[in-house]
Design a protein around this nucleic acid. Structure first.
Lengths: 110, 110
DNA sequence: TAGGTAATTAGGCAATCACTTAAACATTGA
DNA sequence: TCAATGTTTAAGTGATTGCCTAATTACCTA
C-alpha cells in the first residue's frame, strides 16, 4: 500500500505503467522512451516491481516487464472505498460496486 | 494529478484523509491525532489542499477542514481507467461494473 | 574463449522532503 | 488594550530521492 502510492508519486513511473498497459516491454525498450539514463530507469522499474505493480521475466539477456493490473486496481479501488465509504460513493459506478460488496463479508478494513 | 499522487504518497496525509472521511475537523483536532508538531501537520494540510483533496474554511480563530471526495475518487478512478483500460478490467468488482456500464451509453471514459 | 550487448549494482552528489523550534498573525474575551 | 488560544510562516537541519558515471554481472555468438 505504502509502496504502491510511493511508486505512483513519480511521473516517470506512472509513464512506465502507461507504456506497459499497452504492451510488454524490455528494460531497454522502456529506457529508450526516456531522456534519463538506463540505470535510472532500472531503479524506477525496481520500485515498481517491489510495489507489485509490474513483474519481470528474464528471457536470455533481456528482461521483459509486464504490468500487474490487479495490484494497481485493487490498491487504488480499495483505498477509494476506504476513504470515501458509502456516504459519498464514487459516482455512477458506485451503485454496482456497493452491490457487489454487499455479497461478501467485508474484510477490507485496512 | 501529479499533486494528488504526491499528496497520497505520505502515510500521514492518507491518515488525515481517513480522519476527514468520518468528520470535518479543525487543524488543531487533526494535529492532536499525531505525534508530530502542529506546524508539520499544517504543512501536510497545505499539501492536501493544494492537491484539491481537502478544503478549508475559517470560522473565527478555527480553521475547519473537509474532505473533497470527488477530487480523490475522480482522480484515482480516472487513473485506473487510463492505465488498465477495458482490456483487463478491475477484478471481481469489474463484472458488476461492466454489467452496469453495458446498461447505459458510456460516458465514463476518464 | 573473447568481444559485444543488455541490464543491474555501486558510489557519489545536488535537490527535495519532513521535521523541528521560534516567530508572526488572527481572533477571542477579560 | 492586553493576554490567551488557534493557526500559519520562517528558517534551519538531517534524511531521502533522483540522477549521473563507472563498474559489474549475465548472456549470446563468433
Amino acid at each position: 500500500m505504502q509502496r504502491v502510492f510511493e511508486a505512483l508519486s513519480s511521473p516517470v513511473r506512472r509513464k512506465i505503467l502507461a507504456y506497459l498497459a499497452h504492451a510488454d516491454l524490455t528494460a531497454g525498450e522502456i529506457a529508450a522512451k526516456f531522456e534519463i539514463s538506463k540505470p535510472a530507469v532500472s531503479q524506477h522499474l525496481s520500485v515498481l516491481e517491489v510495489a507489485g505493480l509490474v513483474t519481470s521475466e528474464k528471457k536470455g539477456q533481456y528482461v521483459h516487464y509486464s504490468l500487474a493490473p490487479d495490484q494497481l486496481t485493487n490498491t487504488l479501488n480499495g483505498y477509494v472505498q476506504e476513504v470515501c465509504p458509502v456516504a459519498k460513493p464514487l459516482k455512477r459506478e458506485s451503485a454496482a460496486l456497493a452491490k457487489a460488496r454487499a455479497n461478501k463479508p467485508d474484510d477490507a478494513g485496512l
